[in-house]
C-alpha cells in the first residue's frame, strides 16, 4: 500500500513539474508560494495528529526566511541549495531549543506558548533597525549551483525547486508516519499514561515532532523568501500562523498530499476572492472555512480517504 502511495506521489510530482511549462507565469508563481507554505502545513500535520495545534508555527517560517535573506546579505551566499540546507538546520535548531519548553505543554497552553514564542521573534525583528524594522529588506536573487536564471526562467527554477523539496519532505514525513515514533501520534492524543507505562517518554516523542515541524517550516520559509524576494517581520506575526492553521483545517491531517492540495486551494480561493471582492475577500475565505468545518470536518484530505473507504481519524 505504501508503494502505491509513493507511486501516486511520484506521478503527481511529474505531472506538476510538467504542468509548469504550459501554465501561465502568474499561476506558476502562485503555486510556488502555495507549495512553499504547504511545507509549513506539513509540519503542522505532524503535530496536529498528536492533538497539538501550534498557533506560532510562523516562528520557523520566519527563521527560515530571515536565514536566507541574511546569508545573502551578511555572508554573500546566494546558492539556493546551501541557503535551504542552512535554513532547515537553523529552524530545526530553534525548534530543538524551544522544544525543551514546548514539549511539556498540551492543548491551549501549547497553542498559546507557541504563539507567544513567535510573537517574541516578531517583536525583536520590529525593533531591529539594522534589519529594516517593520519594512524588512530584500532577498538577493538565488542561484542554482552556478546557474543564474532571470525573470520567467527564475520563476520556473524556483517552482521546480519548491516542488522537489516538497516531494522530498512529503516522502520523508509519510515514511516517518509509518515508524513507531510517527505512528504513535494518535496514541499520544488518546492516552499518554499508557505510553508512559509502556516505557516511552511522551514529551520526547513530541519534542521530535516539534523538530520535524520546525525543519520543514524553516524550509518553507526559506523557499517563500526566495520566491517573494523580500522578508519582513509579518512572517512571524500571529496572522501568518493563523493562516497555516486555516490551511491545515481546510486540508485535514489525514495525508501528506492534503497539505499541498489544501495550500493550493487556499491560495487560489484567496486570489479569486481578492479579485472578486477586493474589500471583502476575507468574508469569502471565512465562508470557505465555515463550509469546510460543517461539511468536511476532517478536511479535503478526507475526501480521498472516504473514496478509499479508510476510516477518518486525522483531526484532533
Amino acid at each position: 500500500m505504501s508503494a502505491r502511495t509513493n507511486l501516486a506521489g511520484a506521478s503527481a510530482f511529474v505531472v506538476l513539474a510538467a504542468a509548469a511549462l504550459a501554465a501561465p507565469a502568474w499561476f506558476v508563481s502562485l503555486a510556488t508560494i502555495a507549495f512553499a507554505n504547504a511545507l509549513v502545513v506539513l509540519g503542522l500535520i505532524v503535530l496536529w495528529r498528536a492533538g497539538l495545534v501550534p498557533f506560532g508555527q510562523a516562528l520557523y517560517y520566519c527563521v527560515g526566511a530571515y536565514t536566507v535573506a541574511l546569508l545573502a546579505r551578511w555572508v554573500g551566499i546566494t546558492d539556493a541549495f546551501v541557503m535551504l540546507a542552512v535554513s532547515g538546520l537553523i529552524a530545526g535548531l530553534v525548534a530543538y531549543v524551544v522544544g525543551f519548553l514546548l514539549a511539556r505543554y498540551r492543548e491551549i497552553f501549547f497553542a498559546m506558548l507557541s504563539l507567544a514564542l513567535s510573537m517574541i521573534l516578531y517583536g525583536v525583528l520590529v525593533k531591529t533597525e539594522t534589519l529594516g524594522s517593520t519594512d524588512g529588506f530584500g532577498v538577493a536573487t538565488p542561484t542554482f549551483a552556478g546557474y543564474a536564471p532571470h525573470r520567467e526562467a527564475l520563476g520556473l527554477a524556483l517552482y521546480w525547486l519548491v516542488l522537489a523539496v516538497g516531494a522530498l519532505c512529503a516522502f520523508a514525513v509519510s515514511t516517518y508516519f509509518r515508524t513507531t515514533a510517527g505512528a504513535l501520534a494518535i496514541p499520544i492524543r488518546d492516552n499518554e499514561i499508557r505510553i508512559e507505562f509502556l516505557g516511552l517518554s511522551v514529551n520526547d516523542l513530541i519534542h521530535l515532532k516539534l523538530v520535524i515541524a520546525g525543519v520543514v517550516g524553516g524550509l518553507g520559509g526559506a523557499l517563500a523568501a526566495m520566491s517573494i524576494g523580500h522578508v519582513d517581520p509579518n512572517m512571524s506575526y500571529w496572522t501568518t500562523s493563523g493562516g497555516f492553521v486555516f490551511v491545515t483545517i481546510l486540508a485535514g491531517a489525514s495525508s501528506v498530499a492534503a497539505a499541498f492540495v489544501g495550500s493550493l486551494v487556499f491560495e487560489i480561493v484567496r486570489t479569486v476572492a481578492v479579485d472578486l471582492l477586493p474589500g471583502f475577500w476575507q468574508m469569502i475565505l471565512g465562508s470557505v472555512l465555515l463550509l469546510t468545518i460543517l461539511f468536511l470536518p476532517e478536511g479535503l484530505g478526507s475526501v480521498f480517504a472516504r473514496l478509499r473507504g479508510a476510516p477518518d481519524r486525522g483531526a484532533p
Binding site: 509509518r178 515508524t179 513507531t180 504513535l184 505510553i195 516505557g199 516511552l200
Partner: peptide, 16 residues
C-alpha cells in the same frame, strides 16, 4: 513501544 528501544529518537527508525 515495550519491545523497542528506550529513546524516542530510536523509534523514528523502526517501522511500527
Amino acid at each position: 513501544i515495550a519491545r523497542g528501544p528506550r529513546g524516542a529518537l530510536a523509534h523514528a527508525w523502526r517501522p511500527l
